[in-house]
């Protein structure tokens, strides 16, 4: 992106070693700027998920520091950690909705970080919050399902609810960990389109882990390739040719890494 340089996510010499000695991340240095649509690719086990989940500290890193919009999340705890997390929406492969709750309640749960425990527990969300939730649902085209229980929706609809949750959260960053891995090709395209639209219309910095390289090429502005806990490629989408992908994967691309012409 050419607009003014504003560092939103910064990794400084970040490493992660699991208790069993396996290295998840090896000395990562990375800067992501406002408005970027970054897609992280790599084989499973390459550390994509670890990288993404350490941004909002769902995973702890063992060395180095991660800075979100100028504040170190690594050194935050308690209320200040929650304050940083509030600005980061997360979308999961398995949607992670409360299945028995209504869609609206799931979306509103993105707002709890803004209010006192007492107020949220009593369900006293201000009108602006409810409107925000409706707008978010409208943006992903499932407003009519607001009072439906989440478990009655299809996978693609559920994933859109979780995008709406991140929107209602008024997140400045959206992290999406394999958001389309449980979806069929057609819904995959809808969900990815939603993410791109949000990124472009609202300028929300978006970091997505993907398995399919052709999806990465289609949607990303910047691609990061990971192998064995290291960043082995980082550049604009134009530079990420099929040959480069083969380098990242350490072997020629296989068919299951392409979503293909089914869409």
């Amino acid at each position: 992106m050419k607009v003014g340089i504003q560092k939103v996510i910064e990794f400084k010499n970040v490493s992660k070693t699991y208790p069993n000695g396996v290295k998840g991340l090896k000395n990562i240095n990375l800067t992501i700027e406002k408005g970027e649509f970054v897609v992280v690719v790599g084989l499973s086990g390459a550390g994509k998920s670890t990288l993404l989940r350490s941004i909002n500290r769902l995973n702890e890193v063992t060395e180095g520091e991660i800075v979100i919009a100028g504040k170190s999340i690594t050194n935050s705890s308690g209320a200040s950690l929650r304050r940083i997390r509030r600005d980061i929406g997360m979308i999961f492969q398995s949607f992670n909705l409360v299945k028995r709750s209504t869609v609206l309640r799931n979306v509103l749960s993105g707002r709890v970080g803004y209010h006192s425990t007492f107020r949220t527990v009593l369900g006293l969300f201000p009108n602006e919050d409810v409107n925000l939730a409706f707008e978010a649902l409208e943006r992903v085209n499932i407003l009519d399902k607001a009072y439906t229980r989440a478990d009655q929706l299809s996978g693609g609809q559920q994933q859109r609810v979780s995008i709406a949750r991140a929107l209602a959260q008024e997140a400045k960053i959206i992290l999406a960990d394999e958001p389309v891995a449980s979806l069929d090709p057609l819904t995959t395209k809808h969900v990815m389109d939603d993410l791109r639209r949000i990124n472009q219309e609202l300028g929300i910095t978006t970091v997505v882990n993907l398995h399919h390289v052709d999806l990465a090429q289609e949607y990303a502005t910047r691609i990061i390739g990971m192998r064995a806990g290291e960043i082995v490629f980082d550049g604009p989408v134009e530079e990420a040719t099929d040959d480069k992908f083969s380098e990242i994967y350490g072997r020629p691309l296989q068919n299951n890494e392409l979503l293909g012409a089914t869409v």
Binding site: E128, N131, F134, E135, E138, L143, D144, A146, Y147
Partner: peptide
């Protein structure tokens, strides 16, 4: 009451 006009109508909450 609304901050922004919403295109489609908001569904009614169930009783």
């Amino acid at each position: 009451m609304m901050n922004q006009p919403i295109k489609t109508s908001i569904p009614k909450p169930p009783s």
